[in-house]
Nucleic acid binder design. Structure first.
Length: 248
DNA sequence: CGCATGGCCCTTA
DNA sequence: TTAAGGGCCATGC
């Protein structure tokens, strides 16, 4: 087909073209193994731009970006380890084309460590838009690079896992595989406990914060809100930064 | 408690 | 330009 020949021509051109010229026109893509099966990953000279299940990858890319896609010989540096470890610090991302709000949301989500979760409202507070909770959900739903930006680690304030771009079931599987104790979180939520405090450190955390996980059981106190924990003399953890004013 | 509802705000059609 | 709707939240029975 004409289009295929055009792409082939562009690919041939790429060998001689200065770095980045082709990347302004087209993206390249590879197929790599991921934690929930085979993934297609598109990238430019700036970094990874799109992650999507291998099934229907090209169609999804075209629908979203409307740009040509060329096969690449090898994945970009750091991609495969990032997918394996759940830490994306070693791989560059190309988030051009996203709004400032979307980028802010994604950057905040990116700071959530493997095996931990934070509420949607926490993201909203982090980026200085405490009332844009719902828009945060929308932005995460449009995350072009799931897994690399770990939007699966953003869960609902009431303890439910919430929705996910690849489906809620996949979200649960991913979190369990990362070691998040969802059953324990459900139990806590059933008792209306959304924060844990230590009476030896005087600090209150999100339950999955690594600081909270080390609290000696006898010194652990559960709270429904940060306001209540503060009233009891605790201060918010500087690592997990539990926001205030939620879940009255 | 579980459910319904109003609120909020960014994006897209 | 506007209106509708979405990976949510808190409140009120």
């Amino acid at each position: 087909m004409t289009e295929d020949r055009l792409l082939t021509g562009l690919a041939a051109l790429a060998a001689d073209a200065p770095d980045g010229l082709l990347d302004r026109i087209a993206a390249r893509w590879v197929s790599v193994p991921g934690p929930i099966g085979k993934l297609g990953v598109a990238f430019t000279d700036q970094g990874v731009a799109y992650v999507h299940p291998g099934e229907g990858f090209a169609e999804a890319f075209r629908a979203r970006f409307g740009r040509p896609l060329l096969p690449a010989a090898r994945p970009p540096a750091g991609l495969v380890p990032a997918l394996r470890t759940g830490r994306s610090s070693g791989v560059r991302l190309d988030l051009r084309g996203l709004s400032g709000f979307q980028r802010d949301v994604l950057e905040a989500a990116r700071t959530i460590p493997r095996g931990e979760v934070r509420p949607y409202s926490w993201i909203a507070a982090q980026i200085g838009r405490p009332k844009a909770v719902r828009a945060v959900g929308t932005a995460l739903g449009n995350n072009p690079v799931p897994l690399l930006i770990p939007c699966h680690r953003v869960t609902r304030s009431d303890g439910a896992v919430g929705d996910y771009v690849f489906g809620a079931a996949a979200k649960e599987r991913l979190l369990l595989a990362e070691g998040a104790d969802l059953e324990w979180l459900r139990e806590l939520a059933g008792e209306r406990v959304f924060y844990l405090a230590s009476d030896t450190t005087g600090v209150v955390c999100f339950p999955t914060c690594h600081n909270a996980r080390r609290i000696t059981p006898g010194h652990r106190h559960g709270f429904r809100s940060v306001a209540q924990a503060k009233a009891a003399g605790y201060r918010p953890c500087r690592t997990c930064k539990p926001a205030q004013g939620l879940v009255g």
